[in-house]
Design a binder for these strands. Structure first.
Length: 719
DNA sequence: AAAAAAG
């Protein structure tokens, strides 16, 4: 049975069917798992072919499917030999069930549910049928109307732009309304999910993780190698782990500058001896002893640690004073009229400081590193000039059918990619350029279809982008501008390598833009390989603490936690609760819901439709409480969240900054409440230190007035 | 631990 996968793998069409079957059948899955060689054999090629799923070769390929199914059946019987003996009718039963299962459970999510309680099962039976049958088709039908590929879809897209301002909330809202214009039903489904989720998922997860992490592990080996050359980031790492034993996880960048010498002496040298710089054999723009990429200060490049320090200094040096930009308009910065108009429609009348700083250098083609605090307008800061640049590069040329994208924007989460597109698409459309989103969790067909027609700007997450590149469906060779949003995050362990590979697919010497509220030396590796003499910007005097956010830390007894949380979220106004794990996020949402406080969850164990829908529910105000993992920590913009609660304190100061940045956006006020137990108090203090945030610590118990106050409720004077 | 492809 490994065979029928491999040979089929040659041709996508052939390949597709068997895989589809294999994937959708729970039985098969189990069989494969039980079958060692088979699993390992198909784990490799399997990584590509499943992508054909969702393609609709289905009816046409019926024979192929049958053939495969027969083999599969044989394999199953083999693998199930033991079981067959145990339970008499099992063989036949399976045989019968198998074909049905193809129809029934295309979706992973169903499976867990089915095996458990009855109610969920019923609702799931409804849903899968609907969602699978419909979902691939419907969303497409709703929006671009695929049938008329060329003409209609082009008509459609512009249509979206008709409501530029609106478009922020529109897209998700509409599509979900369409899909399930039955709110009450959805609610129910939601809850059911939550229930089934806890039980069902773990097994999948545990299966998945290991595999993936193995893939990644080699990446560690790369790191050091990568670092050898510049040895720069090596400085960072050792230092981190040594100095900060207690506070290791936070330690990060800010303080590092203090003691560069020590770690530098030790490690880097060794690393140079150990491994020849791998990257030297590749065309390395920044390579060479006198490359002055970060520093651009020749005098400083004598030693790498100096360069590192210079980076930091330079960050300061390039800081923009907010008042320097007063009175400057977007037009003055070099953006065309249409774009200026589109920006105005988006509510951006005049540039924020970070925008005023970066637009010009980006238009000049410079590589840019930019740091602007959460909610400071970074998306437009790179988006507007990016559109302008693409436009200029295409001036006078016809936009051909099937043209390859000229710009790429990478984001760490799908929601963020979507949100970025919602900002950039109207800007792009105002000058006749097309964007498309490329992210996982949804069928590929529509994305591939858009690429076939030709797009100018691709916005997406690394996984799917790399996937489509590998499949030859996405050509990045003409990408002359690449943006990394949340760049520091994109340089973390699981992200760095895919990002690196993707960037290598872009045009030689393509312009790179790195943005983040917490841009730090985590990006050094990327900068070394990909950026040439980058300009570095940040907005002066705009540290996170200068904002409009009030920070509070509540010292609590662990046993009171659930009730305190319940009390805090029982309020008017939008509340975003952060939990460390998916399961806990799910649990809390359920807890709140059970207590009569309508709440939804957002985390990676939900399918993309639910993720998008739940986030949209908060945005639209249909629900006031969203419980999320760190999937929502970065970049997500919801206008009026006035309370952020960290049910679990973050481990990293950067995470704290990003989470709390979900409130107090664009000058609004907001409160961040972090719950910690007494034991963690010290760590919390250190973390806040690093974040440069001042927050009072209060010991609270159930029913304390402070909780009432923070929730915005009247404190009963009698009590 | 979470996220990111699919499973």
């Amino acid at each position: 049975m490994p065979k029928n996968k491999k040979p089929a793998g040659g041709r996508p069409a052939k390949n597709f069917e068997p895989r589809y079957g294999a994937k959708t059948s729970y039985q098969d899955r189990k069989r494969r798992d039980a079958d060692g060689p088979s699993r390992s054999a198909d784990s490799r090629p399997g990584s590509k072919s499943p992508n054909h799923r969702g393609y609709r070769a289905e009816p046409a390929k019926a024979p192929a499917k049958r053939r495969w199914t027969a083999q599969e059946r044989a394999g199953r019987d083999e693998a199930r030999g033991i079981r067959s003996q145990a339970g008499g009718a099992s063989a036949k039963g399976h045989g019968d069930r198998a074909p049905r299962s193809y129809d029934d459970r295309p979706r992973r999510d169903d499976r867990p549910a089915r095996s458990y309680d009855d109610r969920p099962r019923r609702s799931y039976d409804d849903r899968p049928a609907r969602s699978y049958g419909d979902r691939p088709a419907r969303p497409h039908d709703d929006r671009p109307r695929r049938e008329d590929r060329p003409a209609r879809s082009y008509d459609d897209r512009p249509r979206r732009d008709d409501r530029p301002a609106r478009s922020y909330d529109d897209r998700p809202a509409r599509s979900y309304d369409d899909r399930g214009g039955r709110p009450s039903h959805l609610d129910r489904v939601d809850r059911d999910d939550r229930r089934s989720f806890g039980d069902g998922r773990p097994s999948y997860r545990s299966d998945d993780r290991p595999r993936r992490s193995y893939d990644e592990r080699p990446s560690r080996d790369d790191r050091p190698r990568r670092d050898d050359r510049p040895a720069r980031s090596y400085d960072d790492r050792p230092r981190r782990s040594h100095d900060d034993r207690p506070a290791r996880s936070y330690d990060d960048r800010p303080r590092r500058d203090d003691r560069p010498a020590r770690s530098h002496d030790d490690r880097p040298r060794r690393s140079y001896d150990d491994r020849p710089p791998r990257r030297d054999d590749r065309p390395h723009r920044n390579d060479g002893p006198n490359r002055s990429d970060w520093s651009a200060t020749p005098a400083r490049d004598k030693a790498h640690e100096d360069r590192v320090d210079v980076v930091h200094e330079r960050l300061q040096a390039e800081a923009i004073q907010a008042d320097n930009v007063a009175g400057t308009g977007f037009g003055d910065l070099g953006l065309g009229q249409n774009i200026v108009k589109a920006l105005a429609d988006l509510g951006a009348a005049s540039p924020f400081p970070i925008q005023a700083a970066t637009i010009t250098p980006i238009l000049e083609g410079k590589d840019v590193l930019a740091r602007g605090r959460t909610g400071s307008g970074k998306t437009i800061a790179f988006g507007a000039p990016l559109v302008e640049s693409v436009l200029r590069a295409q001036a006078g040329q016809r936009r051909e059918f099937g043209r390859s994208p000229k710009a790429l924007i990478l984001a760490p989460t799908r929601e963020l990619a979507l949100q970025i597109d919602r900002t950039i698409q109207p800007i792009a459309r105002s000058v006749g350029l097309f964007t498309t989103q490329i992210y996982g969790g949804v069928p590929q067909a529509r994305q591939v279809g858009a690429l076939k027609k030709g797009v100018d700007i691709v916005i997406g997450t690394p996984g799917r982008i790399e996937d489509l590149v590998d499949q030859g469906k996405l050509d990045l060779s003409e990408v002359r501008i690449a943006v990394l949003d949340e760049a520091d995050h994109m340089c973390e362990l699981g992200f760095f390598e895919p990002v690196q590979r993707i960037l290598r697919h872009t045009a030689e010497g393509s312009q790179k833009l790195l943005f983040s509220a917490t841009l730090d030396r985590e990006v050094a590796g990327l900068v070394d390989e990909f950026l040439v003499d980058p300009a570095v910007y940040e907005v002066a005097g705009e540290d996170q603490d200068s904002g409009t956010i009030e920070h509070r830390v509540l010292i609590i007894d662990h046993r009171d936690k659930a009730e305190i949380l319940g009390s805090l979220v029982d309020r008017e106004g939008k509340t975003l609760v952060f939990a460390r794990t998916r399961a806990y996020a799910e649990m809390l949402a359920e807890q709140f819901d059970d207590a009569g406080i309508h709440a939804v969850a957002l985390h990676g164990d939900l399918n993309q439709a639910k993720r998008t829908r739940n986030l949209e529910r908060l945005t639209s105000g249909r629900v006031n409480v969203l419980v999320a993992t760190d999937v929502a920590a970065r970049g997500i913009h919801v206008d009026d969240i006035d309370l952020v609660i960290q049910a679990d304190a973050p481990d990293e100061y950067k995470t704290y900054l990003h989470r709390s940045g979900r409130t107090g956006r664009a000058g609004r006020s907001g409160t961040v409440v972090t719950l910690v137990t007494r034991q963690r108090r010290r760590r919390m203090t250190e973390l806040l230190d690093r974040a440069e945030i001042e927050a009072p610590f209060d010991e609270v118990r159930l029913g304390d007035d402070l909780i009432e106050e923070l929730a915005g409720r009247q404190v009963d004077p009698v009590a």
